[in-house]
Design a protein around this nucleic acid. Structure first.
Lengths: 219, 219, 219, 219
DNA sequence: TATGAATGAGAGTTCATTCAT
DNA sequence: GATGAATGAACTCTCATTCAT
């Protein structure tokens, strides 16, 4: 979405809006500012969007959709990659996406309140869905005796919160040495230990073997 | 702060501001609204605060101060309570405070951007300090071989994020059965497993013995 | 209405609005213009009226009310003045009022369309009521064989139209010699001849006798 | 005018403009709306008219010209139809025209103010000319002792006002049974009685005789 | 001729802030 | 201290008009 016409007015409009929404927030971003930074006329804004809120919602929706597309439920079907691999891939894709468009991501993380109810509930619903997916995985893990019994909702929120915070910090003040692969491994190590049943930590190492095997096979 | 004059104009002003900032956000909260809900005159507002932003900053500062007061660094001095006890107490105090003034807490969690740079950096600094404290504890734990080696900054953010998210969910949609003590125990179980060195999980149980002992001794 | 505070801001506001609405019409009258001519600040406008339309409606309502108050149904009760006298008095009062506030009257006559439906139907209803009253009088007159049989609705509109047009011309380009009493007599002579039954024209002269008598008696 | 090219763009443009001006008024009719209803492009509008006002003026001028063409001065030349016949024919032609293009007529009656001075004075001049013609006839009638002495200007306005109001009501809410011929007869009966000298009412009946005669002779 | 994306002046309205009372 | 009428800068949005295609 918003990708055609490399340097058309619409593209410039969307980009300057994203940047300003991300850094200043919705209210502090005036239409005047957006069009000024985009180098277009005030009226042109309303050729493309009904109003400021509509533009914001478009950005939000497209952003949420992109994110949702990256997160795939963990599957235990035979032949599928190791669950750890799937989690890791999910995290990697999400971090890649988030870092690729920091402006958009900043909006997701910060603008939680005070524009329209529609926006608010859209964001709320999204995070609830993510929490739902995490919780499902936890329930599944408990049922196969891999995950320790716990308040699955609360733990789901905790896991989600860990990722959100790390992402936010990466966006705000990117650490030079930051590297997605390492970050994903740290997050995995953190999250898995937090939820796996004691004595199941060996689960962490299976993957390494299978990966090595896979790599060997791949050659 | 803001505590004298039980039902004076200032108190009413502050309360209605807190409520409105928390639910509507900074921008959607007009001075008109605040003074109207407080039942005072428009001009009176400016007798107490330079402007709307100043009031917001006052609330924020007082709130951050309160929180900071609740969080005590973990001490390993002999005679001090078990470190777990200290962490647990910190969490309990924070949750108690947060739930006692949801309005103020909502502000801390949501209004991250888009007013003044001062406000933004104040919040940023606060969270960095909290992360600093957590990180120090992690470093300490690693040095005594209790905590597994890890990217301490990233893990500190993860731990902080877990708590922030759980708190946010408790504020937004308080779960009926939610109870601070249980929440703290879940968070502890989550966080400790995530960072403790394998084989050190017995550390979790020491406390129970010492608590029981303490209770016995206390009688 | 709008009469207190001789030279207060509200009064200046209302006056300049009336003048501008009357001469430029509703759409060509901007709020900027009104406040500029009134010598007040833009925001002050909204202290007194919700918006431009609301101000216009207020003026219209107050104007219609004033007019309605001047028009009294013809009564044939014994002891009441001669019907002609009543008609004449009605006309005189209306003309006096209209000439006293030409701006407001111009609004009534010209601004028939294209603002809100509320305004439009308010004006429409008013003129229909006036036509209703005229028609009732005609029906009554026919029943006592004073008025010739006719399409009473059409004749009512004709009579109303005569007065409206004369009034409009008096407002637009006041004829120097114009004088309410003479105008009323001309309108009466016109209207009565138009509707009275042939041979009932003597009805016109009865009044003169009764007036003279009254004057004599008064001395 | 505007008659060539039956279904060309210009014709569609003019028609949709008329309709919209009549129902919404000048200001509430946007160029967007006109071109949209006409099914042509925005820019094409400006190929035919300098601007919105110019289009309105064109419509007004054409409309006024049409009306003017229908109104013929009363002639007393021997051999000409009876004066009443001429008045009646004038009225009939005007009503026919007005009812044939209600959109245009609505514009004439309602949009009296608030666009350009040119438009305003064009309308004003038109009505003054009509009043002039009526007044001339009155003066003539007085000179031959047919019409009662009166304030001829005021009576001219009254007569014009009668017709305008009846026309307006016919346009706004056409009465089912309304029929041009009957309406003309009612208006004539109204107007003649209002101005004829007492005792000259027989003048009204002469015509019937002459018409009957004419019809007879015509066969 | 015809198009419609682009323009920008200007409209109505809001609201943080001031100040005479 | 307390008031609230007054202010005016700044906002969102509209729309008549232009012009490159």
């Amino acid at each position: 979405m918003f990708d055609g016409e490399r340097d058309g007015r619409l593209q410039r409009l969307v980009n300057s809006a994203k940047r300003s929404f991300a850094t200043r927030g919705f209210h502090a971003t005036s239409v005047s500012l957006i069009v000024q930074e985009a180098g277009i006329a005030r009226g042109t804004f309303y050729l493309h969007f009904d109003n400021k809120l509509h533009l914001f919602q478009s950005l939000l929706d497209s952003s949420l959709q992109n994110l949702t597309d990256q997160i795939k439920p963990i599957s235990l079907e035979p032949g599928d990659p190791h669950p750890l691999e799937q989690i890791s891939d999910n995290l990697t894709r999400v971090l890649d996406l988030v870092l690729a468009d920091r402006d958009l991501s900043a909006i997701l993380l910060n603008q939680t309140s005070s524009m329209s109810e529609v926006v608010e509930s859209r964001l709320y619903d999204f995070y609830q869905q993510v929490a739902d997916m995490i919780e499902s995985s936890l329930v599944l893990g408990i049922s196969v005796d891999l995950v320790r019994p716990c308040d699955t909702r609360l733990v789901a929120y905790s896991l989600m919160g860990s990722v959100k915070e790390v992402v936010q910090q990466m966006i705000i003040a990117p650490r030079e040495e930051a590297n997605v692969e390492e970050t994903v491994q740290e997050l995995l190590a953190f999250g898995l230990r937090a939820v796996l049943k004691e004595g199941q930590m060996s689960f962490l190492h299976e993957r390494d073997r299978s990966r090595t095997a896979g790599v060997k096979a791949g050659r």
